[in-house]
Amino acid sequence: MSTHVDVRPKTTPPSADKDVPHSPRRRGRGRIIVSAAAYLITFVILFPLLWIMLLSFQTNDNILNHPFSLSQLTLDNYRQALDTLNLLVMYKNTLILAVVSVTIGLVISYLAAFALTRMVFRGGRRRTQNTLRFYFLAGLAVPVYILLFPVYRLDISFGLFGTYLALILPYIAVTIPFNILLLTGFLRDFPEEIEQAAVMDGVGLWRMAWKVVFPLMRPVVATLAILNVIYVWNEFPFAVTLINDPNMTTVSLGVSQFQGVYSVNYGAMMASATLVLLPQLAIYAAFQKQVIAGMTAGAVR
């Protein structure tokens, strides 16, 4: 709470990649060792992924019985994965779910977070605001499996079952606690001066929320957007329970398609895992600067 948020760094790109200035005398051998360690650790962390990608080019029998033989590399798994999975439909559905639920989720989380932190009442209602904030944060500890039955029932009774909204609503609900945690964390330290200046200019409440404060929250919102998209992209329990139309399947269901009662096609699983993973990695790589910037801006205060 004490570290004062400085709006400057976000708008000055030069500091984007280097935080700590290194003193000139620290170069040379030490630096080589540090670099070597960094590369090595990264490699070790990435190795399991590379291993899976390698396995995805092996036959199912080889994966299970001779995982280290690289003699019979094949594209068969990919062929099977593409044959079985309607990837285009899956990507389309996942995108729709992700875009809609993440956008709505962020907008309503932001509104709530704004109200919980930036609003001041004459009688001093901090207590209500804090209680509500805790109420929202309690959701962080909810294991998703207790939601399945009741959510299914809610969807049925609202007549949403079989529609995208059946998934969108729970997705929004699940992301709200974390969104509120980060957004309130940032908003609480938001410098009052900006607001005061805006108030002097005669700006109303909603304009204040959207036109003055929200734009400054871009980095945090971008961070949350990416984390939320990752969540929706990977979400399995709701998807498998609430989707029963093959035209509505999502990418997270792809891998489980190869898991029969008595037969598991590990090769095709690895291949479809890779097919799900690569776009994710690409998206993250493209946006990772935003994530870091967002976290820097306020998430961690």
Binding site: R8, T11, P191, I194, A198, V212, P215, L216, R218
Partner: peptide, 12 residues
């Protein structure tokens, strides 16, 4: 402080 804020706000 408000100045850069204004700039960003207009753009976004």
């Amino acid at each position: 402080t408000p100045q850069p804020a204004h700039r960003t706000s207009r753009r976004t």
